[in-house]
Amino acid sequence: MATTADNMNTEDGVRRRDWIHIAAVSFAGVGGASVLYPLVSQMAPTADVLAASTTDVDVSALEPGQSIKGVFRDQPLFVKRMTPEEIAEMQEVDLGGLRDAESLEQRLGEGNADILVQLGVCTHLGCVPLGAGEGEDKGEFDGYFCPCHGSHYDAAGRIRKGPAPTNLAVPEFAFQNENVIRIG
């Protein structure tokens, strides 16, 4: 058999030989694995998507009770000037009874009396809740109502009834000046 020649140097050669094969196969394995990194990361958001991450909204013409529907990161954005009655009512809500306890002040942010900024995305499965437009169904808590699976939010966008797990998301935002909010 031709393999005899192999056997001849088995006694003293076995360690070195195994080491070489393991090294070669490991290199191939590490190489193959590292190729996966670009293959996977190419599906992550592209640079232009990541860069398009701020939206400016002018709230100067917004009357109490009115909402502006905007777009933020390809998703609907609700910017609403709350009425004094709503503010008063929302401040009285007992936080202990809420599924996702958040006070109105927490949702508005510091130095912001009445502009409620939130994403118009139901936290259940992502439909756009009704309530921001004139004459839309505001749900049982006079805020927002998602018709897909019946989630009811109050005027501060807090979940009160239905399958949604959390309140409507409040994106990061800051006042550029009295009238302009920059979101993101």
Partner: peptide, 27 residues
């Protein structure tokens, strides 16, 4: 590096299959 180790591995695998000077085929 990978090619170098691959080559060494190849050399090791083939040692004994290649004709060498004064080699005697033990069949």
């Amino acid at each position: 590096f990978a090619t170098f180790f691959g080559f060494m591995s190849y050399k090791t695998v083939w040692a004994g299959k290649k004709k060498k000077k004064g080699d005697v085929e033990l069949v």
